[in-house]
Nucleic acid binder design. Structure first.
Length: 211
DNA sequence: AACTCGGGGCA
DNA sequence: TGCCCAGAGTT
């Protein structure tokens, strides 16, 4: 970690604070399902659906009283509801039969669930179980590359570089900061470098004259 | 590592 | 309306 990188993290913390994931959840199960649902969708959309859904179906066992069609209807306002309902039912089945209805707290077991890849597993590990994990989605991928915490073209490469640089106790917070920054000024197209509070510390901003 | 998949978002 | 794309799964 260079002085410049510390300064960036300081400012991110100041700006975004303990803003959290944006996904509302009360327990690991809710976070797991909400995270599966959130792929290619927005937190707002997911929260609107799950607020109601988790009241009616609070556990993996309760979800199993639904079939693919009825679950699809419940989550229809979220994208990709067909594959998501299929995956969620499969995952709930595994949770009930293998883990007594609980969500496992290690990566290999999480990634063996349906609809759960590296990113979702990392999100659950760090947010639900407070284990050291750094989830890389496209926001994180783009922002860390621009800010110089990473310089790699694959998500695995970025995860490796960032976790080697940033201290472990900041991974979970930093993940949220990068996401919120990526949704804000550091968006994919036409980023607002001129108005960005990190512009003077950002090498990428130097090279790209955006408004 | 490259490709597929299904549907949302944005130009 | 067509292009682009995220993230999981597959090869």
């Amino acid at each position: 970690m260079t002085e410049r990188e510390w300064a960036i993290l300081d400012r991110l913390k100041e700006e975004y604070g303990d803003i959290g994931s944006g996904l509302r959840f009360n327990n690991p199960f809710e976070l797991l399902i909400a995270t599966i649902l959130s792929a290619q969708s927005t937190d707002v959309r997911v929260n609107m659906v799950t607020e109601d859904l988790f009241k009616k179906y609070p556990t993996a066992a309760a979800f199993l009283s639904l079939n693919e069609e009825s679950l699809s209807r419940e989550i229809a306002s979220i994208g990709l509801y067909r594959s998501k309902s299929k995956n969620i039912l499969k995952t709930c089945q595994i949770l009930v039969t293998e883990y007594g209805g609980e969500v496992p707290d290690d990566r290999s077991r999480l990634e063996a669930l349906a609809g759960v890849g590296r990113k979702t597993a990392n999100v659950v590990l760090c947010n639900a179980f407070h284990k050291p994990a750094f989830a890389v989605d496209t926001h994180v991928f783009r922002v860390t590359n621009r800010l110089g915490f990473a310089n790699h073209s694959t998500v695995v490469g970025v995860e490796k570089q960032v976790t080697e640089r940033i201290p472990e106790d900041l991974w979970c917070d930093a993940h949220h900061w990068f996401i919120w920054h990526g949704r804000g000024p550091c968006k994919a197209r036409q980023p607002k470098c001129k108005a960005c509070f990190l512009a003077d510390l950002c090498e990428w901003s130097d090279k790209h004259k955006y408004q």
